[in-house]
Amino acid sequence: MSEAKKVKLLEALLCIVPFEGWSDAALTEAGTNCDLSSQDVSILFPRGITDVLRFYNQQLDHQVMENLEKNGAVDMKVRDRITLAVRTKLELMTPDREAIRKGVSFFTMPLKATEGMHNVYDTVDAMWLAAGDTSTDYNFYSKRLLLAGVYSSTLLFWLDDCSEDFEKTWSFLDRRIAEVLKIGGALGKTIGKVSALANKFQVCVPFSKKSP
């Protein structure tokens, strides 16, 4: 029940944000439009706008995962899966692009930057899981770090893209994915060599106990 109320409140808020921004006043107005008291709104989103944006991002990520599953992403190459995931997320946000723009501005505030990073991590983690990633070693973190850079830069490019059907954005995304694959490959080889060298060193020069 509370989930449905959250969705309804978010939808009402998205109609207000392009004009008033992501503010407590806008959230209160949206609550009034949904016949919710300020106490009701506080129960649904204890941290106010910060929680609303986290919820909004999670809703979008869930839709991305569903869309990838419907489109048979499992049968695609990893590069195509990730590209589709990023593109799908941006396409889902297109109807509310101005609200997204104001959301990006919201997270540039010093006290909100960490929350913005949490949202980005949620997104790239969901994308890799939807793409079938099962890594548990250093690759788990390096993949998400590299994709965070791709997603963030593509998002900013998309916000200012005026080309038809965002053609320039999709070209930009393809270039960034290609660059990251090269970096990721080089990074993996480097870490692999370092790990192998460390293991070899431990075998050849075992630690000895200090004499009393």
Score class of each variant (00 low, 15 high):
1 M>A: 03
2 S>H: 03
3 E>H: 11
4 A>Y: 06
5 K>N: 08
6 K>S: 08
16 I>D: 00
17 V>H: 05
17 V>L: 05
18 P>K: 09
19 F>K: 15
19 F>P: 08
22 W>Y: 05
23 S>A: 02
25 A>Q: 11
25 A>H: 11
28 T>E: 00
31 G>V: 01
32 T>C: 08
32 T>D: 10
32 T>S: 13
34 C>E: 04
34 C>Y: 00
36 L>R: 02
38 S>D: 07
39 Q>S: 09
41 V>N: 00
43 I>W: 07
44 L>H: 00
44 L>D: 00
44 L>G: 00
46 P>M: 03
46 P>N: 00
48 G>T: 00
50 T>P: 02
51 D>H: 01
54 R>V: 11
55 F>A: 02
55 F>Y: 08
56 Y>S: 10
56 Y>R: 12
57 N>E: 04
58 Q>W: 02
59 Q>A: 08
60 L>C: 11
62 H>L: 02
64 V>P: 03
66 E>G: 05
66 E>C: 06
66 E>Q: 09
69 E>Y: 05
70 K>A: 12
72 G>F: 05
75 D>L: 14
79 R>D: 12
81 R>D: 00
81 R>M: 02
82 I>S: 00
83 T>H: 11
85 A>K: 07
90 L>A: 06
90 L>D: 02
91 E>N: 13
95 P>T: 13
97 R>H: 00
100 I>G: 06
101 R>N: 05
104 V>C: 09
109 M>Q: 11
112 K>D: 04
118 H>W: 09
120 V>Y: 09
120 V>K: 07
121 Y>E: 10
121 Y>N: 12
122 D>N: 15
123 T>W: 07
124 V>T: 10
125 D>G: 11
126 A>T: 13
126 A>W: 05
126 A>M: 07
127 M>V: 15
127 M>I: 15
128 W>K: 08
128 W>F: 14
129 L>A: 05
132 G>F: 04
135 S>K: 10
140 F>T: 02
143 K>P: 03
143 K>Y: 12
143 K>H: 14
144 R>Q: 10
146 L>A: 11
147 L>Y: 13
150 V>P: 12
152 S>P: 05
153 S>Q: 12
154 T>G: 09
154 T>E: 04
156 L>V: 15
156 L>K: 14
157 F>V: 12
159 L>Q: 00
163 S>N: 10
164 E>S: 15
166 F>C: 04
170 W>L: 10
171 S>D: 14
171 S>Q: 15
178 A>M: 14
180 V>F: 02
182 K>W: 08
184 G>C: 11
185 G>M: 10
188 G>H: 13
190 T>L: 14
190 T>Q: 13
190 T>C: 14
193 K>Q: 15
204 C>V: 12
204 C>N: 14
205 V>A: 07
206 P>T: 06
208 S>V: 11
209 K>R: 12
211 S>C: 04
212 P>F: 09
